[in-house]
Amino acid sequence: MIRTDSTLAVQITSLNKWYGAFHVLKEVNLTIPSGSRVVICGPSGSGKSTLIRCLNGLEAYQQGTVTLGTVRLGDNARETALARRQTGMVFQNFNLFPHLTVLSNCTLALRRVLGMPRAEAESLARHFLEKVRIPEQADKYPAQLSGGQQQRVAIARALCMNPRLMLFDEPTSALDPEMVKEVLDVMTGLAQEGMTMICVTHEMGFAREVADQIVFMDQGSIVEQASPMTFFSTPTHPRAQSFLHTLLH
């Protein structure tokens, strides 16, 4: 199922970021229409995680603009917060709250941010736990779950806020190999429902199957942007070629 909805979801213009003297993001321009599934890949240290962390304000940047929907981040604190609320984020290390049950992890923001009553929040949370296929773990604590289960809870937690855009920051990098698939399956399901997704990942099988756009970054710049077909068969940039070469061999 390919959605051709071309409403603008994210627009990044001339984004520049420095850590001290180190130039992490160099003149990044990227347009992501709503409904698209973008995979960002590249060698470690290429700035891909930093880029998607800029999209929901976890990282500050020095130059350029990030527009979510119609809101330019940073223009107006209230609107920024609103726009950010429509963005869900899944982290490499899950970042579940260890002192809360799985269910409370999912309901915390619903109740505190959206002011939803407890019963409503819990039924919504159970709905999304069902969706990531672990409804039976609702009353456990994160430490009692496997890594793959924890990451699926993290996805459910993000989905509870009804985001229009999901950001995935290497969601399977901290997982044991046998757990990677269960998380990728959930992500693939989301993509098939038309969720706008931006994923930083090294899972090239997933990229090939699910993405409609591959963004290859190196040393803080986007050096190649193509459809999966083109990217995997005929990468043009030499660094993309050598990156694929080392991944496949």
Binding site: N56, G57, L58, A81, R84, R85, T87, G88, M89, F91, N93, N95, L96, F97, L108, A109, R112, V113, A154, R157, A158, M161
Partner: peptide, 20 residues
């Protein structure tokens, strides 16, 4: 990551301190 996850969920400073 705990503070980051709280911010990514839209929790305010006060809620983050008290609940996370």
């Amino acid at each position: 990551g705990q503070a980051e996850a709280a911010r990514a969920l839209g929790l305010g400073r006060m809620d983050m301190t008290v609940f996370v």
